[in-house]
Design a protein around this nucleic acid. Structure first.
Length: 429
RNA sequence: GUGAUUGUAGCUCAGUUGGUUAGAGCGCCAGGUUGUGGCCCUGGAGGCCGGGGGUUCGAGUCCCCUCAUUCACCCCA
């Protein structure tokens, strides 16, 4: 056990695994641009007030999960970003993007930080990719972000994911519903658990998705938000569902789905994976029209977005056997030196091969031929190129195929040509 | 923040009712083959038995504390 270990809830990603990450990221980049989203990269920390205003001070994230610190004794408190949406909106408003175009479609991949107790599928540093469609209030906008998200899952080959969807209505509807809920739950105050009592005051909607089995019956009898929605809100939701059906995206309406963040309105959705254990949400999102105003914008900015947990996505892919064939790149050629007097010559050859675009490795530690061959084998190099006294004097090159064990002699030109062909063939395979 | 769980070699794990120099498999290194890998054989390196304290003639083993891990609650990706 070494003296230092990674901070609680963080983890190292070694080459085997980083190859998997790169693959998923490449799919995200490709599909996001297919849908017309462009990448935004924002700072990993922001002033703490941004998250307090944006996410909402009653949420657990702001209440107890933020990594906050003060860079200067007199300075303002800053916080490692616990989610992306607030920062993206801040960047868009700060740079007045809406003065140049009415609609902005942005996506991101990045690390987030939340001070929670780690468990399966939950870390203190984790990654999400996500997209935000800003400036459009049409149901087509939410449908588009959901479609992009589901397209990524499909493209990666994931099976059996469940999309649950609900509508939270507009601010006014939710306010009236909130009062109705408080009126409903108030007489049962003694029955409620501590967390729910707290929520009754601050955010009664969240009592609805409590997992406490003791409250199940009580919750089932609660008034439904659906009954508080006006025609416009209902039609908006119906239209979203229509788009999903038309695109063959299966969903399940869940009237108890309430997302944890204060800024959501109208459509809210969540995707779960049965492969994940207790933390089974792999992605989620919704509409958040009020966020911009919350952050000081003078006008509303209709917005839709989703976020997907990279680690949870990768765990699910692993369980479904979708990562087995992904490996880090291996060298095509391993240069083996017979005697150390030829090491410089071998280095020169390796350099020439690399300049010619042929991935090449060699032992830099002056080890025995046997050790060099073992290394080549361990690296799964396709060929071993022998640099020995014979080859050196005759100006020839012995190349051994490490799979078939066949060995043949080349001139330098022929060698380069042969390896170049092998390299392009590998890429095609 | 609460509960439970597990800490012995790089990895996966043995280690009897407390009893001499703490083991195996895999991996690593070297040799068997001083111009050729994988398979095989031989040898080798590598352990404050998570840390601290206590009980005992004696602790990897028992007790207390602590740190860390994992899982669950809460909540979320």
């Amino acid at each position: 056990m070494s003296q230092y270990q990674a901070v609680k809830g963080t983890k190292d990603i070694f080459p085997e695994e980083s190859a998997q990450w790169k693959y998923v990221e490449s799919v995200v980049h490709t599909l996001a641009s297919l849908y017309g989203f462009n990448e935004i990269r924002i700072p990993v920390f922001e002033y703490t007030e941004l998250f307090q205003r944006g996410i909402g001070s009653t949420t657990d994230i702001v209440g107890k999960e933020m990594f906050s610190f003060q860079p200067d004794p007199q300075g303002r408190s800053v916080t490692l970003r616990p989610e992306m949406t607030a920062g993206v909106m801040r960047a868009v408003l700060q740079h007045n993007l809406f003065s140049s175009a009415p609609v902005h479609k942005l996506y991101y991949i990045g690390e987030l930080f939340r001070k929670e107790r780690p468990q399966a599928g939950r870390q203190r540093q984790f990654s999400q990719f996500g997209a935000e469609l800003l400036g459009v209030s049409s149901p087509a906008a939410v449908a588009e972000v959901i479609t992009l998200m589901m397209h990524v899952f499909e493209s990666l080959g994931l099976k059996g994911l469940k999309l649950r969807i609900n509508t939270l209505g507009n601010t006014e509807e939710r306010f009236r519903y909130r009062e109705a809920l408080q009126a409903y739950f108030a007489p049962f105050n003694e029955v409620l658990d501590d967390a729910s009592k707290d929520r009754l005051e601050k955010n009664p909607l969240r009592i609805l998705d409590s997992k406490n089995p003791a409250l199940k019956e009580l919750i089932a009898g609660a008034p439904r938000l659906y009954d508080f929605l006006n025609d416009a809100s209902l039609q908006d939701f119906e239209k979203v569902l229509f788009y999903l059906s038309e695109r063959h995206i299966p969903y399940e309406i869940d009237h108890r789905l309430v997302r944890g963040l204060d800024y959501y309105c109208h459509t809210a959705f969540e995707v779960t994976s049965s492969e994940l254990g207790a933390q089974d949400a792999i992605g989620g999102g919704g509409r958040y029209d009020s966020l911009a105003r919350e952050l000081g914008s003078s006008s509303d900015v209709p917005a839709s977005g989703f976020a997907v947990g990279m680690e949870r996505l990768l765990i699910t892919m692993e369980k479904q056997g979708l990562l087995a064939s992904l490996n880090h790149p291996v060298p095509l050629v391993f240069v083996v030196v017979q005697q150390q007097e030829l090491a410089d010559h071998a280095l020169a050859i390796a350099w020439r091969l690399r300049k010619a675009g042929i991935s090449t490795e060699m032992d830099l530690a002056a080890r025995s031929m046997k050790a060099q061959m073992r290394e080549a084998n361990r690296m799964k190099a396709a060929y071993a190129l022998f640099i020995g006294a014979n080859e050196y004097t005759t100006g020839s090159y012995s190349l051994k195929n490490l799979v078939s064990s066949e060995q043949q002699i080349f001139s330098l030109e022929a060698l380069l040509e042969f390896l170049h062909e092998s390299a392009t063939k590998e890429v095609v395979d």
